[in-house]
Design a protein around this nucleic acid. Structure first.
Lengths: 163, 163
DNA sequence: CCCTTAATGACAACCAGTTGTCATTAAGGG
DNA sequence: CCCTTAATGACAACTGGTTGTCATTAAGGG
C-alpha cells in the first residue's frame, strides 16, 4: 500500500485543522446578520439543546471548553439581552442561564440557516460515507481523550500511579 | 432513516471542533519537550516538507493561515535559532526562511514522535474507513472554500458579478 | 521612464480560547 | 458544628489566530 495508516491519519489531522478554520469562518458569516458569531451561537445552542437552564460550568462542559471561556460569551450574551439569569436554588453564587425570548428567536433563525447550509453541503455525500466519517472521528476523539503518557516519556500524574 | 444527512453532517462538524481542540492540545504536549508548540511545529513542517527556502507569505499559504499569523511564529522561531534568513534575490524586503541545523534536528525529533503517535492512534481503524474519512473531509473542505453567498442573502462582491 | 497597483513586513487592535490566581460559597467528614 | 476541600465567578496574562492600517518595495502598463 502506498499510504500507510499513519500517513492517512496525518492527512486526516491536517484536514481537521483546515476544516475547523473554514467551518468557524463560514459559521461566522452565516450568523453575522443575527449579531452572532460561531462562539455565541454555540452557547445558545447548548441551552436550546438542553431545553433547561444551565450553569456556566455546565455550558462550558457541553461545549468542551473551559468555564472561563464559556463565561466570556455568557457575559456578552447577557449584555445583548439574549440570555438572562435565574436564581439557582442550589448555589447562590452560580446563577442558571436561560434564553430570553429574543435569544430563542435568534437561535431559531440561526438554526434554520444552519439546516439550509448543512443540506447544501451534505448533498454531495452518500449516507454511508458520512456515517463512516462520523464513526472514525468519534472514535478518534475518544482515543484523544485519554492521555498519551507513554509516547512523551512523561511520568503519569500521582493520581494515576501504578500500585 | 432516523438521522437525515443534515444532522449527520452537523454531528461531523461538532466532532471537527472537538477534534481540533484535542489534536492541538495533544500535539502541544507531544512536542513540549522540544520547546515547540503545534503552531511552531507546523511552521517547521512547512519548510521541511517544501524542502527549500520559502518566504513568509508562502509559508502562511501552505499552513492555510494569514501571512501575519505565520509571521509571528517565524519571528519567534528566528529568535530561538531554529530558522535563519537567506537573502531573497527576487525581493529584497521579503527574506527566504530556511531551517538551521538545530531547526532540522528538532523537526526530525518531532516527526518521529508524530509517527509513533499516529501509528498508535491509527491502529484502531480499518484502512478503508480512514480512506472514506479522508475523502469526505477533503470534499467538505473543498466545498467550504467556495463562498456561501446564496444562503446569507449577501450580494456577491463586484468581481464575482454575473455578466 | 513614470505612475499606479499589488505584495510585503511591521504594528496595533481584536476574538476565542487557555492557564493561573484569588476570594467566596458549597459540600462533606471528623 | 467546625474545618478542610471542591466549585465557582472575576480578573489578568498569555497563545494563536484574525482584520486593518501604514510605509516600502516590486511589477507592469501608459
Amino acid at each position: 500500500m502506498a499510504r500507510p495508516k499513519e500517513k492517512l491519519l496525518a492527512d486526516v489531522m491536517v484536514l481537521v485543522f483546515r476544516l475547523n478554520g473554514r467551518l468557524l469562518e463560514q459559521g461566522d458569516r452565516l450568523v453575522e446578520r443575527l449579531n452572532l458569531t460561531s462562539a455565541r451561537w454555540q452557547v445558545l445552542g447548548a441551552l436550546a439543546l438542553a431545553g433547561r437552564s444551565l450553569t456556566a460550568p455546565q455550558i462550558a462542559s457541553a461545549m468542551g471548553i473551559t468555564r472561563q471561556g464559556a463565561q466570556k460569551q455568557l457575559n456578552r450574551l447577557m449584555n445583548e439581552g439574549l440570555l438572562e439569569h435565574r436564581s439557582n436554588p442550589s448555589h447562590e453564587r452560580s446563577p442558571l442561564y436561560v434564553l430570553t425570548d429574543s435569544g430563542a428567536r435568534t437561535f431559531a433563525e440561526a438554526d434554520q440557516l444552519c439546516d439550509l447550509w448543512a443540506a447544501d453541503l451534505g448533498q454531495a455525500f452518500p449516507e454511508d460515507a458520512l456515517h463512516t466519517t462520523e464513526r472514525v472521528l468519534g472514535e478518534l476523539l475518544a482515543r484523544l481523550n485519554r492521555p498519551l503518557a507513554s509516547l512523551i516519556g512523561k511520568r503519569p500524574k500521582a493520581d494515576c500511579d501504578p500500585l
